[in-house]
Amino acid sequence: MRWLRTLLMALLLTLTPAIASANLVVVVSNDSQVQSLTYDDVVNIFMGRLSTLPGGEPVVPVDYMPLRASFYKALVNRELADINAWWARLVFSGRGSPPRKSDGFDETIELISHNPGVLGYLDKSRVDPRVRVVYEFGGRS
């Protein structure tokens, strides 16, 4: 039965990112015109490939630092080291800057709710009426 245990362990490891991401949501201000984003939109914006929303409006992504590792694990299944290495390529070629960093919850939700062009992520349980969920992990499209 060792093979079964190994298989279950492998399955558990594979599912870990999904479990970790189950409570993360991507949000914008309630004043934003954006109603929803696709998985590819979120990846392209947070990885610095696009600086506009699908409608063409400028967007500023914000990393909420306490959830940063979980977010990128959920988004692209990468460790922070890989994300930082990616940004090192963009920063030190002068081609891009990483998302703005935000450390505290209050600061983050203020930043998002007062700026329709800001895209951030939060724990689903802490979403309040000031922000709108535009992408939820687990419902990848």
């Binding site: 930082n84 290495a85 090192a88 030190f92 081609r95």
Partner: peptide
């Protein structure tokens, strides 16, 4: 462009 930035690869 970033061949001297060892951390990036």
């Amino acid at each position: 462009e970033t061949r001297f930035v060892g951390y990036s690869y």
